[in-house]
Amino acid sequence: MSEEEWLRQDRLPHIFCAGCGNGTVINCTLSAVEQIGWKKQDTVFVSGIGCSSRAPGYIAADSLHTTHGRALAFATGIKLANPALNVVVFTGDGDLAAIGGNHFIHACRRNIDITVVCMNNMIYGMTGGQGSPTTPAGGLSTTTPYGSEEPAFDLCVLASAAGANYVARWTSYHVRELTRAILTGLETPGFSFIESLVQCPTNYGRRNRFKQVTDQIEYFRSHTILVEKAGRMKEKGEEVPAGMILSGEFVRRNRPALGVRQ
């Protein structure tokens, strides 16, 4: 089987804009699912509402496209009712961190055995580019026309503090690393959270000085720094340059998990 066989051929091309990073994250997730050897009939993809949440509709397994922000609550029901199913949740920054923030921290706390792939495009893409909880301070959007005045959520730190067993962050440029991180997430019992920054050329990029799709990808390439390296720099008393994206593995641990197949 190949990744291609996990796609609903009759639904492609998908609705994502040209250059949208969500498609890349789908590739990486399917590659990881393929590598771990899960079967289609045992795997369920769940999502909420938003650009990212359209992803399960293109995957040829059982999939539940739910209401805004509630994907994790639905996924919790599925996993507890049938622990034999492998549950992967696709979500976005608005879906997960804003309307679904409470479900997120409680899913981490329960450490329920599901893997969450968050496509963080730092904006509400589907509704036309409104500011989200992860829009960086100063970021322009239709609801922050003078630059966002709020600090952004660091989803990985949040997930780590709330108790997830595995937490990692990469970007849609780092396809290899992202795939490996998702694979580790799938393998880890308990709640795994993989955040992938993705470019949104239509709504974020063009308002925030990334004229071309490749500009934002180039930014991801040049502005990521490994968590470990940032840690070493801090130990040495060096300043981590502002605006750098911390990437890599934030947490890998073995807290007791819920809903693990017996």
């Binding site: 059982d62 509630r70 609550a73 919790t76 599925i78 409470n102 409680h106």
Partner: peptide
Amino acid sequence: GVFIQMEDEIAGIASVIGASWTGKKA
């Protein structure tokens, strides 16, 4: 069976719908 106390009623009904799709009466 499975009992779970969710974080709010929204999550409660959501988990019930999820469970129902696995074939359980919820």
